[in-house]
Design a protein around this nucleic acid. Structure first.
Lengths: 209, 209
DNA sequence: GCAAGTGCATACTACCGAGTATGTTGTGAA
DNA sequence: TTCACAACATACTCGGTAGTATGCACTTGC
């Protein structure tokens, strides 16, 4: 039964709406301040609909978290393989990451919250496993940047910095977008691109040889 | 009556313990997941003690927030007036900020949460006013950095960057410490200094002329 | 056309947590 | 010594919320 609910995750009927709405609520009010009824009301539905797909509020949150991570990977991984030195590829990855943070503000805000929850007391063993999975995914994401950073150091395009600290600082500067970034009413893709490139340029110039 | 409770804020009897413990709880579990009973239990006391000093959970949170901001100001403002070019002073300020983030991890984690709450629905008009105050204080803190950034651009020690975006990115890289930094068991002041300087150096090198 | 399941809504329960009302004990001033 | 008040503890209330049990229309394979 629970396994069925898990599998429903990626089919695109009412589920995508639930995920999107839940992401909005979690972004605005946080996990524990958001009630299932809040999400349902915003959907124009009732709890029944949500509990039909998700067996608990925590599971719903985790699924939003997972979707947020998937979107980050889909944004960053493709540009990871482009031609160029380490610094060129890293710049492209960071820019893609920043763009994804803005394009999926709600989901990525949940991802940021999820990082905070790493120490959370996940009630059921099943949830604990899911949480550990998410932590591992997050680590893998960070290691993408560390890897290219290292390659940049090796090919001489990046200074000999502390990989781990530099990665955390750069990703921090970008992730911090989820704290202060709010889409302007008449904002275009080009505006976001400009913003992303300015942030990334500062970070890149801090480590380039 | 309420005014009395406000005034008690800075006397140092049991109040400081409440503030410290509350900061710990808010850091670990977040605002809404933390119950007053949680804080009381951790104090080895009961709700009565807390409600004797604070009229609501929100007020307690705001007071922790304010204390966190005060500590940041006390760390950064003194070094703002040192001798040197803009880039030299900015480096000192950022380093002091990073050190304060680590030294007061619990309080600063609450400050970060407070930023998220800017859109919160503060119930009473009194709380709304307090929240607006905190927002203003936060703006003033950010403007300290913007000011020195501008002076650095003017005296030629800093490149001609977008002041607002650069400030947010640099502060973001440092504030992100509250997400991933956890004090190591045998950590010394020197260790933290080393970490702070590495993060700050990357940021400074990104904007220096 | 019917049985079995899907996709919800409705109607509950049980509990937790914020805030309150009311003790109780110490303590300093007069 | 006593009175007033501070500094809590104890014992409640009551609204909100996660989760459940059940009902009900609608579809789909057979």
């Amino acid at each position: 039964m629970i396994e069925n609910r898990r599998q429903v995750r990626t089919d695109g009927t009412g589920n995508a709406d639930i995920l999107e709405t839940a992401a909005q609520c979690f972004m605005e009010q946080g996990f524990s301040a958001t009630s299932i009824d809040d999400v349902a009301r915003r959907l124009g539905a009732t709890k029944g609909r949500i509990y039909h797909y998700y067996s608990s509020k925590t599971d719903l949150f985790f699924d939003v978290h997972r979707e947020g991570m998937e979107r980050l990977f889909q944004a960053v991984e493709p540009v990871m393989g482009i031609e160029g030195t380490g610094v060129v590829r890293l710049r492209a990855m960071l820019t893609a990451h920043a763009m994804a943070m803005m394009a999926n503000a709600a989901f990525e805000a949940v991802v940021v919250q999820g990082v905070h929850m790493h120490r959370m007391a996940a009630t059921t063993p099943d949830q604990r496993r899911t949480l550990d999975d998410l932590i591992a995914i997050r680590r893998r994401f960070e290691s993408l940047f560390k890897q290219v950073l290292q390659e940049g150091v090796d090919d001489g395009s990046i200074r000999n910095v502390d990989i781990s600290i530099s990665a955390k600082a750069m990703l921090g500067a970008i992730n911090w977008l989820s704290v202060w970034y709010r889409p302007a009413p008449d904002e275009t893709e080009a505006d976001r691109q400009m913003l992303a490139e300015r942030i990334v340029t500062t970070q890149i110039d801090g480590i380039r040889s």
